[in-house]
Design a protein around this nucleic acid. Structure first.
Lengths: 159, 159
DNA sequence: ATGCTTGCAAAACGTTTGCACAGGG
DNA sequence: CCCTGTGCAAACGTTTTGCAAGCAT
């Protein structure tokens, strides 16, 4: 699904990138082109080190520093999103053209259910005005048990 | 408020800690006692390094490694919660006996504003039934600019 | 007495930076 | 051509770990 999304619009994404760079006086270099290429072949979520590994696998010689310097640019131009979860490394998520969504994670089987963020955005507007805060983003993760696990194993509900 | 909460039940917390250690075959040592003492004097949120600094301030000699080894124990026994915001260091939050709440983090000054989770819990019930998921917990973090930064630096709002 | 716990220093970890050179506009 | 981007290695800040010695049970 997302893979399709990415592979069906590679040139559009390259244009987005090139235009962004051009408008900001940043150069469209070979290294950055290579990085975008491989980013498009990565799964939904990945870390800098994995990207570097894939570059090496494809015999593309790009320094680690360049990867770390390019990822923030891809975030700024709306292709990726940096998500910092409960691990030390930053994870990057492909977001270009995706609808905003949040996740429910099943504690038992690890299943991830996505749901639209509409109501969360509504709520956050409300919270923003109540707390005098200018909210621009959010991260929401619900944890619990998916339907199957909850019926399978009522005992696990306790946790 | 929280300070009162903590200082009004120090012995209860010490019991919780001692019992937890005892039940898990972990020793109730002087270093761990000292760390709990200072944790109770810390603000709502703190980092390992700040805790270490406060220990030094109080002329309590505890190694950095011991602090890093003790904090996870305090998390396991329900006194603290480890919260990872979008910064590199882990933040610890006093949660024993506290009402659930979530956070807004200012992108500019790093300030953390807490707000009640009531509405989030309401929302998550709704989302749970819509998506057939048994929700037991959540993590919500709003990001943006606190009031001061938003007025100080309207330009930053763009980001 | 036993073996978990400690402190120290050193390692590990992901990430950033200083520098001289390469390459894009 | 100029000035930005690059790769390397070294620096960085946080956290973890190996080890000999210390202490709680």
């Amino acid at each position: 699904m997302t893979q399709n999304n990415k592979s069906s619009q590679p040139s559009e994404l390259k244009d987005v990138f090139r235009n962004y760079l051009h408008h900001n006086g940043i150069k469209y270099t070979q290294a950055r082109r290579h990085i975008l290429d491989i980013v498009l072949e990565m799964g939904e979520h990945f870390e800098a080190e994995q990207l570097l590994y894939r570059l090496r696998e494809n015999s593309i010689s790009v320094g680690k520093a360049t990867v770390y310097r390019t990822l923030p640019i891809l975030v700024d131009c709306g292709i990726l999103k940096a998500v910092r979860f409960d691990v030390k490394q930053t994870h990057y998520e492909f977001v270009y053209g995706q609808d905003p969504h949040d996740h429910m994670v099943c504690n038992r089987c690890g299943r991830i259910v996505e749901f639209s963020s509409d109501k969360v955005i509504e709520l956050r507007k409300q919270l923003a005005s109540e707390n005098r805060f200018h909210v621009t983003g959010h991260r929401l993760q619900l944890t619990g048990l998916c339907w199957e696990c909850a019926t399978d194993c009522p005992v696990a509900i306790k946790k």
